[in-house]
Amino acid sequence: MLWSKGIIYSIRFIFIVNTIYLVFNLQFLLVGLLIGSLLLTFIPEIFTKISNVKITMTGRVVYTVFIFGTQWLGTYLRLYDSLIWWDIMLHFSSGILLGYVGLLILLWIDKEGVVEKNIRFRVIILFSFLVSVSGAVFWEIMEFLADTIFGSNTQLGSLQDTMEDMVFGTLGAILFVIYMYLASHKKKKTVLERLIEIN
């Protein structure tokens, strides 16, 4: 628990210190990026306050590290440019992470636990998968709008880049679904069951 909080607070500290440095260097576009990234790290706490659904500390750490990887390492330190596999890895990871988000949303909208109590595992897996794939598609729509409206180049002007991102996001979602399926059939405690325990 302590090390988990340490990781989250360390990442937030890096964002804050780096933002102060950029303010003194008058790099306000990057300041906006890092402030936005810092705010994104608080989404798990905000989600819990709104929904009353608690998130495991492991889930919070994975999410925060993901934000760090996309925004600070990927965009600020430009690993997207220097490592050709960085973008693919993050889109694949996002498929897994969004599968987890699907479970959180299900716990939120199914307050009575009808789906879990009746062990509608296929429904749970399908819902989680569809949330994940929808997230991948939504992200590409946002990238397209950013490129069109603000003149950025997130999609590299390439249909191939867009499709690769969606394919790897979908593969991540499939991996998460396979994990859920195998864990349930081997009678191992799934991510969903851990979430149910703390809620």
Rank of each mutant, 00 (worst) to 15 (best):
Asn52Trp: 13
Val123Ala: 01
Leu22Arg: 10
Ser134Asn: 08
Tyr181Asp: 01
Phe168Lys: 03
Thr19Ser: 09
Thr19Phe: 01
Lys189Tyr: 09
Ala173Tyr: 00
Gln160Met: 11
Phe13Cys: 10
Phe28Lys: 05
Asp110Ser: 01
Ile43Gly: 07
Ile46Arg: 00
Ile174Glu: 00
Thr75Val: 11
Ser132Lys: 08
Leu171Glu: 00
Tyr76Gly: 07
Glu143Ile: 03
Val191Tyr: 03
Leu30Gly: 03
Leu175Asp: 01
Arg120Ile: 03
Ile119His: 15
Trp72Pro: 02
Met180Lys: 01
Phe42Thr: 07
Ala136Gln: 12
Ile141Asn: 06
Ile46Tyr: 02
Leu159Cys: 06
Leu159Gly: 14
Asn52Phe: 15
Ile149Arg: 08
Glu112His: 04
Asn52Leu: 12
Lys117Cys: 08
Trp86Met: 15
Phe24Arg: 02
Ser51Tyr: 05
Leu175His: 01
Ile124Lys: 06
Lys186Thr: 15
Ile20Lys: 02
Leu97Thr: 00
Val101Phe: 15
Lys189Gln: 14
Leu38Phe: 14
Asn52Cys: 13
Glu112Leu: 04
Gly151His: 12
Phe144Gly: 07
Glu164Ala: 15
Ile141Asp: 09
Trp3Ala: 09
Thr190Gly: 11
Leu29Tyr: 13
Glu45Trp: 07
Thr64Cys: 12
Gly32Cys: 13
Leu192Glu: 01
Ser82His: 05
Phe24Ala: 11
